[in-house]
């Protein structure tokens, strides 16, 4: 994360009207999709894209503080189980489930955050890697609550109307706009300025009056809470939760989405999500080949293109402009 020469696409603090206008246009187009396309499969893919985008963006928020979590899917799973249990065991409405999905991972993150966020980058990666595995094992072992390795089936839709894929499409789009918008706003605020300062030089930031650990714990807890909501949306969408859906492999997928898209701006995970979910559709039937391609992309991006696809796009844009200018 050293190269920051991404000015064309970087969401600088308090970026002016243009990114906002682009975002509004994208959301408007997405909102029109169900009116034009009634294909159930496309609409379901849309919901998956929005849910994954929320999860990836929440990981981006944590990555911006300089910590890559390899246990993010564990928090997503905690959110999913929390919501599903709230709705199915306690008989409370979906809204209460979403609240639980935010609060439960948030509290856990607040508890472990002060300990693990003292660690530097690589140790944090390792701890979260192991932590994610522990959480998955808890899902498997705590059979009376989680249903063990089989998970929980027959999860109801948030409300009868959401059995319709178009309705779920709008629900997840709405959640996506709200939560990703929140993250964008946060990163563009004074808090975002502090986050970037901490990542770039923790020592300097601390001595400029930024309460480093408190900031990191707060952001970590927020990111984990948001991914919990994504977990709830996913659980009630695919109608079951099980431990393998929230294993280290899934955490890794969220990292892949961020790395492919680019870790320096919030646009990165969004582009990464699209690429990550659309490419497989083009290679349908060749699941293994997708994974191999993703693997090779990861290698190439980490070796030559630390800014990911967004950086590639930015460079292409510059090139086009230079051509046009000369």
């Amino acid at each position: 994360m050293t190269d920051a020469s991404l000015s064309p696409l970087a969401l600088a603090p308090r970026a002016g009207g243009r990114p906002l206008a682009i975002a509004a246009a994208v959301v408007a187009v997405l909102a029109l999709v169900p009116l034009v396309i009634a294909d159930k499969f496309i609409l379901s893919l849309g919901s998956t894209v929005f849910i994954t985008a929320i999860a990836a963006a929440s990981l981006h928020l944590i990555i911006r503080t300089g910590h890559i979590s390899l246990g993010h899917a564990a928090f997503m799973g905690i959110g999913a189980y929390a919501s599903v249990l709230t709705v199915m065991e306690l008989g409370l409405p979906f809204a209460a489930g979403v609240l639980a999905a935010f609060v439960a991972p948030c509290l856990l993150a607040l508890a472990i955050g002060p300990l693990v966020l003292r660690l530097t980058g690589k140790y944090f990666v390792l701890v979260t890697f192991l932590f994610g595995e522990i959480v998955r094992m808890v899902f498997v072992e705590w059979k009376s609550v989680t249903g063990g390795a089989n998970g929980i089936f027959g999860i109801p839709a948030p409300a009868p109307v959401f059995n319709d894929p178009a309705a779920y499409y709008y629900l997840s789009l709405g959640a996506g706009v709200l939560l990703v918008g929140f993250i964008a706003r946060l990163l563009a605020s004074e808090v975002g300025r502090a986050i970037d300062a901490v990542r770039e030089s923790e020592r300097l930031a601390h001595c400029s009056g930024i309460p480093v650990l408190r900031l990191k714990v707060t952001i970590f807890a927020l990111g984990c809470g948001i991914v919990g909501i994504a977990g709830a949306l996913q659980g009630h969408f695919i109608r079951y939760v099980d431990p393998t859906s929230y294993s280290v492999v899934q955490s890794l997928n969220l990292v892949v989405v961020n790395v492919i898209g680019g870790m320096q701006t919030l646009v990165g995970p969004l582009v990464g999500t699209l690429f990550y979910l659309i490419l497989p559709e083009m290679l349908r039937g060749y699941v293994e080949l997708q994974r191999i391609i993703f693997g090779i992309i990861l290698i190439i991006v980490m070796a030559f293109l630390p800014g990911g696809l967004v950086e590639l796009g930015g460079r292409a844009l510059q090139l086009v402009r230079r051509r046009a200018g000369s």
Partner: peptide
């Protein structure tokens, strides 16, 4: 991250 890709 790069070698996670290689693993994959």
């Amino acid at each position: 991250i790069g070698l996670l890709g290689l693993e994959m």
